[in-house]
Design a protein around this nucleic acid. Structure first.
Length: 804
RNA sequence: GGGCCCAUAGUCUAGCGGUUUAUGACGUUGCCCUUACACGGCGGAGGUCCCCGGUUCGAAUCCGGGUGGGCCCACCA
């Protein structure tokens, strides 16, 4: 039978090995069961990445996988890693103190790949397996695998054929640190203080105007000036020309309603490019293009003597010179929110480069419609998706000037300049290594390979297709798409969710998944986001040094999907206590069930009471798991187990169980104990799989004939076992028990103190049924005699009197 | 500036129109070694259910308006 203490470490390892060895969680492609597939988020395979928040989020949907498996689904649950992206590249650069400029693309990629393989192994063993996650490891994929690359490139080629991609020379969001183009979704706003400089511009025909700017370093690229059409102060300026200080170019003054008369002097200068507004007006009024910045964030020859200076340096130098010329009027402090690269927080610039785009703006309406076909949990996050989609301002820029990533399968003809996109059949391909299979249409066979790689989301947005092997098995794919569930975190709705929905729409005119569930977002104990840079990160392995895996998982079970949760170590204690209670109660129950096999028997009233409650709990737990309300489900089970089963039912049947003689009471109690503990184990197994497996294996596995509790059948709700009458009588019994306990405790008496007589006064209609529970009551309360009569103290629906 | 979410005892949380004199846990406190569990049991104390209006016979629960927090987005050159 069960040991006196639950030895977590040993038991966790034992069953993890058992599950792995028996391939318990293997997806069965031949099974007739309905499929439940999960589009697992590929975690970054870069070191020091997975903190307690990841353990929380990944375990959260792992619980769902376990539930669905028991509920009779053929669960398709692949593990995966994202090793294709800037984090890996940056990490390798830092670790080996090299930059992508010092090495060849092939060499660099090799280093990246090795690094991520090591980390994947470490994460698999030390995080995911350790947490008891039930992936089918044979389904593992990573985003740099050739299959993933193939899907990613295939997607590009397919969309190119469909006319949904284009290459354009456009002002593009640019990260001067990473030296690459970015997508709108990769921006992060950062508040900062800056200086608003008021500068004089001289007018060509005499006089001067005042312009306020935060970016004086862009003066060399100034191509126009705007005032508001209704602004009385400046109406007469429209059509005139002004001279840009220091740089001398003459620019036209124009009018546009977008000018804010209240801000600064009410006159705006346009530089190519300081912000999105500049781009808008540049396009609208077909202004000249003047580029004064380089790709690494310096000024170029257009800036004359300021050439080679970094922006901040140039800003100071230029303002200094303007001041010297007596053109600086005043300076004001200004709170500003600048868009920065989300990975390095460097403010982004707009640089005109040739980049590849996937069309998104044309499909806004359809994408919102697609979003509405998907079930969002919680539902309100759909609004966030719709807001993002509605407000999109740019098509998706997918080319990145980086090394480590999926190569773009394109060449350019050296003679006619036309682009040649790879054939679907030759994917995956690295155009820098292989040449096109055909000549260019112009007859030339000289090509230049595209050196860019895809935006990492180009691959991530295909995770449903990769995970269910779209290209490997297109026939099967049709049956498996859309996927059942996308679990993800809410901060990447605008990227991962959006791009995935977009891709699935463009390729298949289909939604990628039926459900999308937003996991719990972790905060530190003070309610702030966890960031390595803030030093407030809690690591999973640290927590596991002091707490068992199931204790941690129990805590995960209390988290609500879609809400934020502050990590407080104290909250883990509840789980630890629960495990102890479950262990001890199981010891008690199994002790009495030794050698027992369930047989149908006549049930007593209190048995029916428990059965009725149990069925309600089964229904509640099941319904809530179906809706991803893990915590509600868990709470219901816990309540039933701890209070109804342990505190009340076990105490009530205890005297019968310890009675040496076999009795019908003992038999019916055993029958109830058998099923109530079995069902509790099953209902809680998805959340705390190790301890429930241990208890199950010690007794139930043989009785029930299942290899493991985790592939056993989920408890069925039986409406015919809901018994309102038994519940009413049972609740009265519990009230009476509680009152007598209160009486004894109030007098400082032990609960086993014997009492002489208990008198109950109740509705005559209830007497007959209540009488049936007198034997249970006598045993539980150690009372000699119970009778109906006048009661003194009101206890719920009845009155009682106690005689010592 | 726009959108979304949240607000319940010292802390976390359930309830989301009447079944509630608001649930459970952590913490706190008194009693009890009760043939599973003292890592426990039985009790107790602890709450203007953020504020102001409204709807209703009835509001923690619905509506409107505040206040405070969080998140997402936009943005002023």
């Amino acid at each position: 039978m069960l040991d006196k203490r639950y030895n977590a470490e040993e038991i966790e390892k034992k069953w993890q090995k058992f599950w792995e060895k028996n391939k318990l969680y293997k997806f069965d492609s031949k099974s007739k069961k309905p499929i439940y597939s999960i589009d697992t988020p590929p975690p970054y395979a870069s070191s020091g990445h997975l903190h307690i928040g990841h353990a929380l989020h990944y375990t959260q949907f792992e619980i769902i996988a376990r539930f669905r498996r028991m509920k009779g689904y053929n669960v398709h649950f692949p593990p995966c890693f994202d090793n294709n992206g800037l984090p890996t590249e940056k990490y390798v650069e830092e670790k080996f103190k090299i930059s992508k400029a010092d090495t060849t693309r092939a060499e660099f990629r090799k280093l990246c790949l090795k690094e991520s393989r090591d980390i994947e192994k470490a994460y698999s063993d030390k995080v995911f397996k350790r947490l008891g996650h039930s992936y089918d490891w044979d389904l593992m994929y990573t985003t740099i695998d050739s299959e993933a690359q193939k899907v990613s490139q295939f997607s590009f080629v397919d969309l190119h054929e469909k006319g949904h991609v284009y290459r354009a020379e456009e002002p593009t969001l640019w990260c001067p640190h990473h030296q690459t183009a970015l997508a709108q979704a990769e921006l992060e706003g950062v508040d900062r203080n800056t200086t608003l400089n008021y500068i004089y511009f001289e007018l060509v025909d005499g006089g001067k105007i005042e312009i306020a700017t935060t970016r004086p370093e862009l003066l060399p690229a100034c191509v126009g000036i705007f005032v508001h059409p209704e602004d009385k102060r400046y109406k007469k300026l429209v059509g005139k020309k002004a001279v840009v200080p220091l740089f001398g170019q003459k620019v036209k003054i124009m009018k546009d309603e977008h000018v804010d008369m209240e801000f600064g002097s009410g006159i705006v200068m346009i530089c190519t490019f300081g912000d999105t507004n500049d781009i808008e007006w540049w396009k609208k009024y077909k202004l000249e293009l003047k580029v004064c910045v380089t790709k690494d964030g310096e000024l170029n020859e257009l800036a004359g003597k300021y050439k080679g200076m970094k922006f901040t340096e140039a800003k100071q130098a230029i303002i200094g010179d303007i001041d010297k010329e007596g053109l600086l009027i005043k300076q004001e402090k200004l709170q500003q929110n600048v868009n920065t690269c989300w990975r390095c927080n460097t403010p982004v610039e707009f640089i005109v480069t040739k980049q590849w785009f996937i069309k998104a703006l044309d499909f806004k309406k359809e994408l919102i419609k697609q979003g509405r076909k998907i079930n969002w949990y919680p539902d309100f996050y759909r609004v966030r998706y719709e807001d993002w989609t509605k407000n999109l301002g740019w098509d998706w820029c997918i080319s990145r000037q980086r090394f480590y990533g999926v190569p773009m399968p394109i060449w350019y003809c050296k003679d006619c300049g036309k682009e040649v996109v790879a054939e679907k059949s030759e994917l995956p391909i690295d155009p820098t290594i292989k040449k096109p299979s055909k000549k260019c249409k112009c007859g030339s066979d000289k090509f230049e390979a595209e050196n860019d790689v895809f935006d990492t989301w180009m691959t991530s947005s295909m995770s449903p297709e990769i995970s269910v092997r779209w290209l490997e098995n297109p026939k099967e794919f049709k049956n498996r798409f859309p996927i059942s569930l996308r679990p993800q975190s809410h901060d990447i709705i605008r990227t991962w969710a959006f791009y995935t929905i977009l891709k699935s729409y463009l390729h298949f005119n289909e939604i990628p998944w039926k459900d999308i569930a937003l996991g719990t977002y972790i905060l530190d104990d003070k309610g702030k986001g966890m960031h390595k840079s803030k030093g407030n990160v809690v690591w999973t392995h640290e927590v596991l040094e002091n707490y068992d895996v199931d204790t941690l998982r129990y805590w995960v079970g209390t988290a609500t999907w879609g809400e934020d949760l502050a990590f407080k170590e104290n909250d883990l204690i509840a789980g630890r206590k629960f495990l102890t209670k479950l262990w001890n109660a199981s010891r008690f129950v199994l002790m009495h069930l030794e050698g027992y096999s369930p047989k149908k028997v006549e049930l007593e009233l209190m048995d029916k009471w428990l059965l009725s409650k149990m069925n309600k709990v089964i229904k509640e737990a099941t319904d809530n798991f179906m809706k991803y309300n893990t915590s509600v489900s868990k709470k219901a089970v816990e309540q039933f187990f701890w209070h109804d089963l342990c505190d009340n039912y076990l105490e009530i049947v205890k005297s019968a169980l310890y009675n040496e003689e076999d009795s019908t009471r003992k038999e019916s109690a055993k029958y109830i104990l058998y099923y109530s503990l079995l069902n509790v184990l099953k209902l809680i197994a998805p959340i705390i799989p190790h301890i429930s497996e241990e208890i199950y294996q010690k007794y139930y596995a043989e009785q029930e004939g299942d290899k493991s509790v985790h592939i056993s059948e989920w408890p069925k709700y039986e409406e015919k076992l809901i018994d309102k009458n038994a519940e009413e009588i049972g609740n009265i019994v519990i009230d009476v028990v509680s009152a007598v306990r209160r009486y004894k405790t109030g007098k400082g008496l032990s609960l086993k103190t014997e009492l002489n007589k208990l008198v109950i006064e109740c509705d005559k209609k209830l007497e007959e049924d209540l009488k049936k529970t007198f034997d249970d009551l006598k045993g539980t309360l150690k009372v000699e005699e119970i009778e109906f009569g006048k009661g003194k103290e009101k206890v719920g629906k009845v009155k009682i009197s106690i005689f010592e």
